[in-house]
Structures are given as structure tokens and as C-alpha cells.
Design a binder for these strands. Sequence first.
RNA 1: UGGGGUGUAGCCAAGCGGUUAAGGCCCGGGGCUUUGACUCCCGUAUGCGCAGGUUCGAAUCCUGCCGCCCCAG
Length: 354
Amino acid sequence: MRIVVGMSGGVDSSVAALLLKREGHEVIGVFMNNWDEKDDTGVCTAERDWADVRRVCDQIGIPYYAVNFQREYMDRVFSHFLEEYRRGRTPNPDVLCNREIKFSALKDFAQKLGAEKLATGHFARTDAAEGRARLLLSADPDKDQTYFLYMLSQPQLKMARFPVGDMTKAEVRAVAREAGLRTSEKKDSTGVCFIGERNFRAFLKTYLPAQPGEIRDVDGRVVGRHEGLMYYTPGQRRGLGIGGEGGRWYVVDKDLARNVLVVDQRADSPRLYSAESRLEAATWIAGAPPVSPGQWLCVRARLRHRQALQGARILVDGGDVLVRFDRPQRAVTPGQSTVFYRADECLGGGIVTR
RNA sequence: UGGGGUGUAGCCAAGCGGUUAAGGCCCGGGGCUUUGACUCCCGUAUGCGCAGGUUCGAAUCCUGCCGCCCCAG
């Protein structure tokens, strides 16, 4: 079977390619260059990553390509990312990136190459039940990445392969090491996918105008000034610049109408906790909601990557979802995604509106 | 003007004659992390408003000056 592997230059996708090759498939490595800019330290990590991809593919003995989806990334991911920040929300570009770039633009490219499957180094698993593809938690609970994949559709998931999904990170590195892959000890990448680790405030500042304003406590007293609401997100404590007595301050709210950042010194401020949340733009892996309209469904949910799964009940209302948590959740953040699970299966999720 | 109080790092704040001046916040660096956050670890005053003096030794005592705060008038 001809399979394209999306290769980042990291150890996970390197091993993904290696395993598929060992299975006897006709494997083609494809490296994506979606962001042409040096990082904060002046290094263009994409060049080094591309060099690693070439080297690894040579070691494995597979052909490789580099593709440039900068235009697609800008139009379909980054523009939305900026728009969300402009609206005062805190977006997650990587969930969109998977749907719009890796499993769309790259998927199209793979199909042009005649590939039947598109593999990546994601820590996630899939299986098929009654003609439908399912997305399942990875074997390594610490590295599970289904949170970033919840927007995938049936066609996208049916073409996807995740060769390292049933391995632990340690096992992946061990395989890479034994095969002598140069990426075996490479540090895991972080930051926005393709963009990398950034001084976020400075990064945003180059794209969006900032409007400074007051910082007030929950009683309305002015306790400082902010540089622009978009630089802050609920639950955040660093970067507020408020010294003095009483300890740390946490962002508990953003008053967009008044351009006021609301803060509290209680880490467990009641303003930070929500027993309920509402989502929009819900998507379901199965292609349809897992429950009939008007009926509550018991699920597990996570509001951010790597968060332990939380008990909740959901009510689907068209593209919206009402979520009631078993336990109040801290810093439910508009723009972020809430993703649902039943047992090990990822059901889908949506974007938090409140 | 008189009386009282007070001046320790960017912000709070211990210290009240004797090891290298607590701690918290902010900030910086690192760890964790394919979003943003949270969290964890490490670091940050040769100097205590200024100038003298007492003392073996002063942020700590004394004198003067300067700056704030409060009460009188």
C-alpha cells in the first residue's frame, strides 16, 4: 500500500515512517513548510527540521518531498486565529491546523501522489466499527493528542494512520534509537504547530493593534493597567505586572465593552469556576451527534490538552452544546475547545463561547 | 508653624547593636507542554532616604538635613 507520512523532523513521525516501511508499505515522506519566519532566537527551525527529515528518510530508505502550504495556513488557520484574538477570545490554532492543513491540504497532496493512506506521528488510535472510523485515546495517556484531532471528519479519519498511537513515548524513542535515527533524542516540539515557541505578546503585537486599559479587582478598584485584553486569558497570573501585598493575581474575566481586565487574588476565585459551559461549532467524529436532541448524555470531557478527563453531561442543540460538569471547572475559556470522550473513544467537541 | 509617625530591592514587608539583610508579589531564566494558560524549580539589595557621629561592630543608638503621612492651628 502506498502511504504518505507527514514528517515534521521529530522523532514521532520518524518512527511512524519507519514502522510503516517495516510493514512493507510503499512509504513517501512529506515535509510541510507552512510558516516562513525565524523564531525568537533568530533560528529558522524549519531548515533544520527539513534536514532531519531528509536524513531520516534516507536512513529508512524512502523518497521524500517538501511542500509549502504557507498560503493555506495563513488563509485557513492563522487568519481565523487572529480574528479570534481580535474578538477577545483565546483560540487554539492547532485544532484547526489538523482539519485544514494536515488532513486537508496535505491529504490532497497525498492523494495526488496516489497514496491510499496519510500517516502522522500523532499519539492517537483509530479503529473501524460498523463502517465508521473511530478516534481513540492513545496508549500513552501522558502524550495523548486526540484533543487536537477532534475536528476530523469521517473521510479524513478513514484515510489517517497513526503508527505510534499504540506505543508509549519511551517506546517510540527506543525504536528510533535502535534504528539509529538522528531524531531519536530530539526534544519534543512545543508552541503553535509550524510556528513554534514564541514570546506570545510580542508575536501577537506584530499582527494586532493593542489597546491598553485598566486592570480592576473584583470589587472594581483599579489595581493596574493592561497592555491590551488580547494578551490575557482567564486563569492567567503571569504578565500582569501587579506587585505589592496580598500575593498573586489571576485573570478572572475580560470586560470587552469597557476594555477592563478583571483580576482576583484568590487562585480559587469563584469568578473562575463554571459548573456549566456552552459550545458552538460542534463537530462529531461519527459525523452526527452521539445523542438525540433534547437528551442528556453522560460523557467525559477535557477543556485543554492533557487535562485529566472530567465527568460531564451534554445536551446537543444543533451546532451548539450545553455542558454541565460534575465538578465546576476552572478557567473555562472562550475560544478554546472542549472535547468529549466516552470510554476511550473521542466523540468530538466544540468551541467554548461561555 | 507646633506635636506625633515614617522612610529597607520595581511593589508590599521582616529586622529593634553582632553570621554573607527574612518572606511574598512583580520580573528574569529553566522544567513540564504540538494552542493559549496553569503548575513546578532556580535567580534577583556589598546595601537599608542623605551626611556625619558613637561603638571592636549599626539597617538597628545619637545629631543634622531631606521626603512623605496624620493630628493640631
